[in-house]
């Protein structure tokens, strides 16, 4: 069988992504225009969301488990709305998933912004998101890790503090294997 000589393969390229990625997390900001006359309604809807389980201060349990935080900011006399978050992973890979899950959670809010009419199909979702999305000019983070890792880290530290409160901790932590934990035990 003839073996082709071949030409050089096309060089590998990586498509540039929207949103700045720091470690595992990408910033995601959407800027909307509030529908005229809906200023009060959108403010009320956001207040309702704020008071729902998971969003109440101290709940730390947003229904979307892969975002570090979420903020809705009304500005320019309530004529504009900013939604800003930090998403674990490259959010553009999840564009179709947004329509099916996360965007539904914000339906009550987004129905007060322009360009939203229930997002009947994927093209509409893509259009809605990409028209509103602006990539940050600067973005920094003070900790690495995904939401899952941070939650685990908090659980582990809570457990560690409980260990330290036990009078038997000193003896236990003096095992050679415990040295890294002993180093963290003094303050």
């Amino acid at each position: 069988m003839p073996r082709s000589t071949g030409t050089t393969a096309t060089p590998a390229t990586v498509t540039p992504r929207p949103g700045v990625l720091v470690g595992s997390t990408s910033e995601f900001s959407l800027f909307f225009h509030v529908k005229p006359g809906h200023e009060e309604a959108v403010r009320e809807t956001i207040a309702t969301l704020q008071n729902s389980p998971g969003y109440r201060p101290g709940d730390y349990d947003l229904p979307i488990a892969t975002i570090h935080e979420a903020r809705f900011v009304l500005f320019d006399g309530d004529t504009r709305l900013l939604f800003a978050t930090s998403f674990d992973g490259p959010w553009d890979a999840y564009m179709e998933d947004f329509a099916s899950k996360p965007l539904q959670l914000f339906d009550a809010i987004f129905r007060h912004v322009e360009g939203y009419d229930g997002l009947p199909d994927v093209a509409a979702v893509r259009d809605f998101v990409l028209r509103a999305q602006v990539t940050a000019t600067g973005y920094g983070r003070n900790y690495g890790g995904t939401v899952k890792e941070i939650r685990k880290a908090l659980r582990v530290n809570n457990a560690f503090q409980r260990v330290l409160d036990d009078p038997a901790a000193l003896t236990a932590l003096q095992q050679p294997a415990m040295q890294p934990l002993l180093d963290e035990a003094a303050d």
Partner: peptide, 18 residues
């Protein structure tokens, strides 16, 4: 598909326009 798996190391004719 990078390093050893990169197209420059693929079996021909893979990765060519042929």
């Amino acid at each position: 598909d990078v390093g050893e798996s990169s197209p420059v190391n693929w079996e021909r004719p893979f990765g060519t326009p042929e």
